[in-house]
Structures are given as C-alpha cells and as structure tokens.
Design a binder for these strands. Structure first.
Lengths: 154, 154
DNA sequence: CCGTATCCATTCCGATACTG
DNA sequence: CAGTATCGGAATGGATACGG
C-alpha cells in the first residue's frame, strides 16, 4: 500500500492516516498547537534530523495543514503555523493524548499534562458526544455503504 | 528516536503514537471495531503482507490492545478482538475519521461512512466536550509542568 | 539561522516459499 | 487456514557538509 494508492481508498481513516499518520508528523502537530513554531525550535523539541523535519514540514504545508508566516520575533525568517484545516486535527491529538495518559504510564511516572485554561486544571475526561450530549459508544456504530461525500441526506 | 527511547518520554501523545501510530496498526484497529477479526479477514481487507500483519498483531496483543479468542464460526482457529484498553482507542479512530471526511475527499467522491445505530444516520459533528458540555478549543489549552500520573490534584 | 544535499545504516514492506 | 522464514527493494532516519 503506497501513499498514492491510499489516496484512492474510500475510508476516511486511511486517508487521514496517510496524511498525518506517522510518528514525526503527529509530534510536529502536537507542538504546532502551542503556537507558530520556528524550524530550529521544532528540531530541538523533537530531536529530529533536519532533512526529515524539512520533508515533513513540506508535506504538511503541501497538504494545507501548516502555513509559513513571518516569525513573531523580529527576524526575516518564517514560522510554521496551523491553518484552520490543521487546527481541526486538535481532536486527533487530544484523543491520542488522553489514551496515553490513561494507559501508557505506570503509576507515579511523570507526564506532561495539557492544561485547560478555563479551569487552570489538567484537561481530563473529555469525550466525543452527539449534539444532544450523549456519548458515542463503539458498539453503537457500524460501517455503512459507500456514498457521495457531498450528498444531501446527512 | 527509537521505539525504546519514546517509551521514556513524558509526552502522552508520543507514547501513544509509539504504540499505535503507524499506518497498518491504525487500520487494523479500525477493522477491529467492527468486531473480532480473523487473520485472513484482516489480510484481505487491508491488502497487507502476512508477515507484516503477523508482526503488528503480535505487537497489539503484546500491548494489551488486542486479545485472541476462539473464532465465532466453528473452527479451531482464533480471532483477534479488542480489549477494554483497545476499545478506548475509539476516540482516536473517530477523530481520524471525522477529519478525513471533512478534509480528505473532493466533493462528490464516494466515502464509507460510520453509521450511528441509534439514529440510522452517518455519525457527524461529534466534538470533544467537558463534563459541562462545552467544547474544548485549542486556544484554551496550554502545556503544563511535569507531574506524577497518579497525583491527587487532578 | 534556515534549510538542502549527500551518504550510510536501519527499518519497513511485499512477494514467495514453506510448515502444521 | 494461520501463520513463520527469507530475500530484495524501497523508504526512513541520523549525521554531516554545504549554500542562501
């Protein structure tokens, strides 16, 4: 399964995985949610090789998930910032984070929490809910037939 | 950054990505949410090489995300089913799916929706909400200091 | 400071063959 | 059917050197 083939598949999960589903890309996005990032800043934060970072950033910009903008701190250089499309990946990052907090640490181990600024406390126990506020359970869902993306009955 | 190094990192996102953040693993999980899967079933569905599938399944079982259980249809063979730990990855898959539906298809392209059986309609517009029902925005969050996972003040 | 280009080691992946 | 073993090619990753 190559990158090009995955783009033909009708499964939304596979298409998304194809765009952002590798170790470095997801971690770049994690950092990007803190605000616009400089190249060297990302490199230090992630411990990634420069050529790989360059490659991933180019891919994200190409996909319309990141944009380059003038860096805030004087210099003539650029910073990488999320587009609206990129910002909508927030749920993906949050979902990964929450699962990790619950299952990927031993008791007493240190972790870096995400703070909810409206409460000042770590963000916890958020869940996917329908518009009526009810949580969606895996057992309540099933895969449907193929249908056009833009169809009226949604 | 090797697999072993990532397991030392304090970032929950990285730890989760380290366990399930590759193309095949996420797609195996996607299928697993439809119910227990046989080996050959996964292989056909994903178009994955048998040795790779074998490797990924072993990793998921090892991580406690999948278990083997007797296959439903008579045979002496096994099926791979989600554990509770695995079922809690539902939010991750949903988040990937939703983003893909919104951004990874051209208008009119066909996609395979996830049906909400409580309504019979495709699942749409679910969002991460706090316990009070309010949606969490990226701009409302910030990374906190390192702290123990099991600490009281949470 | 921000990347690109190159080299080399490692890993990943798919195809095939083989075993119980 | 459910894997394991092996092999070659492709992609990935890190280090370094180099140019804007």
């Amino acid at each position: 399964m190559t990158k090009r083939q995955a783009t033909q598949e009708p499964c939304p999960v596979m298409r998304t995985v194809d765009l952002v589903g590798d170790r470095w890309t997801l971690l770049i996005l994690r950092d990007a949610f803190d605000g616009p990032c400089r190249f060297s800043q990302l490199q230090r934060s992630l411990g990634i090789a420069k050529n790989i970072l360059s490659d991933r950033l180019a891919g994200l910009v190409d996909a319309g998930i990141l944009t380059t903008e003038p860096a805030a701190d004087s210099s003539a250089y650029q910073a990488y910032a999320l587009t609206d499309k990129g910002r909508d990946l927030f749920d993906v990052i949050i979902a990964l984070r929450q699962w990790g907090e619950q299952y990927a640490f031993d008791p007493g181990e240190e972790y870096r929490p995400l703070i909810d600024q409206t409460t000042g406390e770590p963000l916890r126990h958020v869940a996917f809910t329908r518009e009526d506020g009810s949580a969606v359970q895996p057992s309540e869902t099933t895969l449907g037939e193929l249908r056009p993306i833009g169809a009226a009955a949604r």
